[in-house]
Simulated assay, not measured.
Amino acid sequence: MTTYDRLHRQCRTLENLFDSKLTTYAQLAATLAQPEQDVEASGSSNRWKDLEQELDDLLLKLEEINEQLSTLASNPDILSASMLRTIQRHRELFQDNSRELNRTKTNIHAALDKASLLSGVRNDIDAYKSSAGESLLAERGRIDNSHRMTDDILAQAYETRSEFSRQRTSISSVNARMVGVINKMPGINNLVGMIKSRRRRDSIILGLLIGICTIIILSHFGLYSSMLLYVYPLF
């Protein structure tokens, strides 16, 4: 087997393998470009790296073989025209594969950047939602505390109003009793006046009785003295 035949077969084998892996790589790029695709969860993150490394290795081997074929083509005396066209075709295919790989790499990296950006945005949104949720819970707690304080103040106000009502009732009762006493005062004054009048009358009657008794006693004593003088005249 000549050198050309060996290099040609190696190049064809590598080109077919490269084409197969590049197709898989392009399909992976389309998968990563989907907005709803989770790169980390689907395992695509490691898969595209492995494929990219394999394609880079294959492209490097193809470049080496194409350089060897180009070296053979520099001596056209030992190669036929069809061989030279085949070598040219391998070179053109290598260039096409290089451009296609670079284009697919660019698409995949753009898709990964977009996915990373979307993931960052989702994380920011989740963090914001979490923070907003915590803020809402804290605000709700403050509102609940305010409601409890308001309820306590209202309860104290109701209790104070009830106490005022009880005091007002007590004051009204005292006022009623005072009014009743005041209304009864004229009768009491009249009673006291009657008692005083009766005492004065009793005092007068008692004085009269004492005077009369004194007069009677004195009268009897004077009469007794006169009788003694009459019975026992002075010598």
Rank of each mutant, 00 (worst) to 15 (best):
T2M: 07
T2Y: 03
T3W: 05
R12G: 05
L14F: 01
L14C: 01
S20V: 06
K21E: 10
L22M: 09
T23W: 06
A26T: 08
L28S: 07
L28A: 06
T31K: 00
L32Q: 00
N46I: 09
W48R: 00
Q53F: 08
L55R: 02
L59C: 01
L59M: 03
L59V: 01
L62P: 01
E63H: 14
I65N: 03
E67V: 10
Q68G: 00
L69Y: 00
L69M: 11
S70W: 06
S70A: 12
S70I: 04
L72I: 07
L72R: 03
A73H: 02
S74R: 13
N75L: 12
Q88L: 03
H90D: 06
R91A: 11
E92S: 14
L93S: 01
E100P: 00
E100N: 12
T104M: 01
T106R: 12
T106D: 13
H109T: 13
A110N: 14
A110F: 10
L112F: 06
L112C: 07
K114S: 12
S116Y: 03
L117D: 14
L117T: 10
I125D: 09
D126T: 13
S130F: 05
L137W: 09
A138Q: 15
R140T: 13
R142I: 06
N145T: 13
H147K: 15
A157D: 06
Y158P: 01
T160E: 09
R161T: 10
S162Q: 14
S165I: 02
R168V: 02
S170I: 14
A176N: 07
N183A: 15
G187I: 06
I188R: 05
N190A: 11
N190R: 08
L191E: 11
G193F: 05
R199M: 08
R200T: 12
R201N: 11
I204Y: 09
I205G: 09
G207N: 15
G207C: 10
I210A: 15
G211Q: 11
I215E: 02
I216N: 09
F221R: 08
G222A: 15
S225K: 03
L228E: 08
L229T: 03
L229Q: 09
V231S: 13
